[in-house]
């Protein structure tokens, strides 16, 4: 995609803020946020989000969003490596997390 290749090194160092439904804020490097397909397209278009680097996720609770952020770091850290540790998801969270991860394409 031509849009994404235009993201320069400088931009990669930026910080993205994700805001959950219940008002919690999560800050992470843009590079890490790009693990999510949905966030990637939001951050690399002419949408408002790519200028402000703030994304409000209206129907996502903080517990779930925290887990997603954790996964983004996990994926970013271990991508391309072998023998990586398992990513831990509490059983009772699996169904809700599936809905959220489908939306965020992670």
């Amino acid at each position: 995609m031509s849009d994404t290749e235009e993201i320069t090194q400088d931009e990669q160092n930026q910080v993205v803020t994700l805001i959950s439904k219940d008002g919690f804020q999560f800050q992470l490097p843009k590079e890490v946020a790009l693990v999510s397909g949905t966030l990637k397209s939001m951050l690399s278009t002419s949408f408002k989000e790519s200028a402000t680097n703030r994304i409000i996720l209206h129907d996502m609770e903080a517990v779930l969003l925290e887990k997603v952020v954790e996964y983004c770091f996990y994926n970013w850290k271990y991508e391309g490596q072998v023998d990586v540790p398992d990513f831990d998801v509490p059983t009772e969270m699996a169904l809700e997390l599936l809905v959220v991860s489908d939306f965020l394409e992670v």
């Binding site: 996964y71 991508e79 998801v89 059983t91 699996a94 169904l95 599936l98 991860s101």
Partner: peptide, 23 residues
């Protein structure tokens, strides 16, 4: 690396007998 969706689906499949646990 498995996607987060794959991870969730695996947990769901493994625990299918005890649906209550899944929330």
């Amino acid at each position: 690396i498995p996607s987060l969706q794959d991870i969730c689906i695996k947990i769901i499949t493994d625990n299918i007998e005890a649906v209550d646990l899944l929330g």
